[in-house]
Each structure stands twice: as C-alpha cells, then as structure tokens.
Design a protein around this nucleic acid. Structure first.
Lengths: 207, 207
DNA sequence: ACCTGAACACCGTTCAAGT
DNA sequence: ACCTGAACACCGTTCAAGT
C-alpha cells in the first residue's frame, strides 16, 4: 500500500521535502545528479507534483542556490561573532578560513550555489540579496582592519579581490589546475591571500 | 538525395568536423547545448558514428577543452612575443590583458575548457599538459619582473594568485556577483590585480 | 574500417484527468 | 488546491546489422 507511506494524499510540505532531498542528492552525487524526476522519486510523489512548487527545473536549482548562499552567510556571521576578541586583521583571516571551510566541506553545494546559469537568470533576485548578506560581513571585517581610513570603494575593491582569489583558487583546485594536498588546501590559500592583505596595509600606510 | 551532401559514404575527417561543429554550438548556445546527437546532426552523420572517434560524450568535451587550453596558450604566447620591447612589469600586465581578452571574447569556450567534470577526470592527461603550456608563459613573465631574485616556489605562488584572481573574477562577473559594465570588465580587473603586483615588488625589495 | 537504425533507460515539460 | 498518468521530444549509450 503506497498510500501508507504518507499520512494523506497531500504531502503538506512538499516544497521543503523536495529541497531537502535535492540537497542530499547534490552531496551524494554532485550537482549534475539533480533531476526533478529523481527528487520526486525520493520524496515519494509523482514527478509532476514538483511543478506545483517549482516552475521548472531551474527554479529548483535556484532554491538550492538560495539555501547555499544563506548557509554561507550564516557561516561567515558565526565566524565574525566568534572572533570578537581577536585583532582586526586576525578577524579577516578567520573569515577567509570560514569561507574556505564551508566551500571545502560542502563543495558540491558550493558549486551549484555559484553555478552560472542560475545566477545569470534575472528571475531570482533573492540570490543577489542573499549573496550580499555574506559579502556584507567581509566588508565589515575589512573596514575595521586599518587605522588609516579608506573609501568604501577601496574596501569594496579589496573585498572583491579576496573573494575572486578564494573563488578562483577553489575552482582551480577542483579542476586540478592547482595541485595541493587535500589537507593543505586551506593553508596554502593563506600563502596566496596574505600578500594581498600585506600590500593593502603597507601601501596605504605609506601614503 | 542525402548522399550528395558528402562525397563518399565515409566522411574522412569526422573527428575534426565534429570538434568544429561542437565549438560552433558552444559559441552559439553555451556549453550545455553540446550534445553528441546535435553535433552529429550538424555534421550530417548518424549519431552513432560519433562513437568511432569519441569513447563517450565526455571525450568530446575533453577534446573541446584541449582545444581551449591550446588556444589560450597560443594567445598568451602571442602577447608575450609582441611585448618584447616593453618593461618586465608591463609585459606581465599585457599578459593578464591577453588572458582576460581571451576569456571575455569566447566566454562559453573558456567555461567549457575549465569545466570541473572533465578536468577532474584522469583519463585526459593532455589537459594538464596543455594548460601547463599557458602557465609556463606566465611563469616566464613573472620571473623576469624583478631584479631581486625569488625562488621558483615564490614565483609559482604569485602565478597561482594571479591566475586564481583572474579566474575567480571572471566567474563572479559572469554569475553577476561582481557587477561591472561590460566594456569596463577588463579595466576593473587591473584595479584588483595591480595591488598584488605592487605588494610583490615592494615587500620583496624591502627585505 | 566506418556508418546506420532500432531499442533502452533516462530526462524536462505539457495536457487532460483524478481526489 | 494538490497530485497522477499518459504523451512528446529530447538525451547518452548498447546491440546487431549494413556498405
């Protein structure tokens, strides 16, 4: 009796159930493994039921990405809160570590979150907003780093530099263009990022 | 008479024809649009004929990626040759420009070339080798940049930094996480990369 | 040696119908 | 309001057969 698998004919929380199963699928078999039909199968409903909650497959991907940006923002906020007693510069480094840790621990999720097709799509402005929430933490950390005041644009540029560096580094590591032992992946990133922070502090102070 | 479309029953150069049509497809409709069946259709053969030249779909993707790395390496080599009369640092900047130009002018190709799945796959060592050829140009340019000698490891780290920065920047621009007017995309990258070069020159000289 | 055609197990998406 | 089932047009891949 398949009817016993669910209490009622109506699932009740199908949207969240699908999102949950989709995330499991991403973690298990990578971003490409997500299909509407497989997710529906895992939840235990007809594949057509999905369309009550997601306009199309991309809408499901967008929901996964939104969840990803949100989890990333929360991870950064937690790091920021926990580093309160540290020096400003150490707080920035801690934040970068939190970013790398998040990406490395759930790399499939990270990859689907930053996937081009869904981020390009203007139908999901929520992605912009949620990503912004994470970037705001970095801006705050960088803003507090130097005694010498810098313009908002200068801080933003440094923020984009660090973000680009971290994101590109991760992609190149995953694509095997940068070869580094897995347990040293986060540490080696320091070697790349520190000169950027050094340059920022020394160059600006010198003026 | 479909037979008139080709001179003989045998195509003769099917592998190259498929690769060519695949690249057109990538440029026209993006990386996702490439399917063995569509490529075969465009060449004018049965989709099964593809399997004589490519083991599976990924092998076709790998061939596209190899072609991409090769074109990139050539673009960098051309830039390097053309900048012979410039100062060492200007040559590095010219090289970065060439990289950005290549990526922006054929972004779909760039994206499929650096695609994770195919680069992860150990069945295509040619990708490693061809990518290395491009990176070697950057290493040469950076090695010539400073009077003060640096170890090969230090130069390589700087190279990985610049590569990560450029690659991550491109991804974030394409994903709309960094918003910049299209005609300023390459110029804004300068603002991000220059501090890295400055930091490298000043920090090392000071010791 | 190289190409074809039918078949299989998957997709995403649409339409008409069921509860 | 929510879910189902058959159908359509696509995939990649395999097998047996054609030239």
């Amino acid at each position: 009796m398949p009817a016993r698998a669910r209490r009622t004919y109506h699932h009740g929380d199908l949207r969240n159930a699908m999102l949950q199963k989709a995330l499991e699928l991403v973690d298990e078999h990578g971003p490409e493994a997500v299909s509407l039909r497989e997710v529906a199968r895992r939840v235990g409903v007809n594949h057509r039921a999905a369309y009550r909650h997601f306009d199309d497959k991309r809408a499901l991907t967008a929901a996964i990405a939104e969840q990803g940006y949100l989890a990333l923002a929360v991870a950064l906020e937690v790091s920021w809160a926990k580093s309160e007693k540290k020096a400003p510069r150490a707080r920035v480094v801690a934040l970068m570590d939190a970013y790398l840790d998040f990406a490395l621990e759930s790399s499939a999720r990270y990859r689907i979150t930053f996937g081009k097709r869904v981020n390009e799509d203007d139908r999901y402005p929520v992605l912009e907003a949620t990503a912004e929430r994470g970037f705001a933490v970095l801006m705050r950390a960088l803003g507090g780093m130097r005694a010498t005041p810098a313009s908002r644009e200068q801080v933003r540029d440094l923020g984009f530099s660090l973000w680009s560096l971290a994101h590109g580094y991760l992609q190149l590591v995953w694509s095997k263009r940068i070869r580094v032992r897995p347990e040293l992946t986060a540490r080696y990133f320091h070697a790349l990022a520190v000169p950027l922070l050094d340059g920022w502090e020394t160059t600006k102070k010198g003026r």
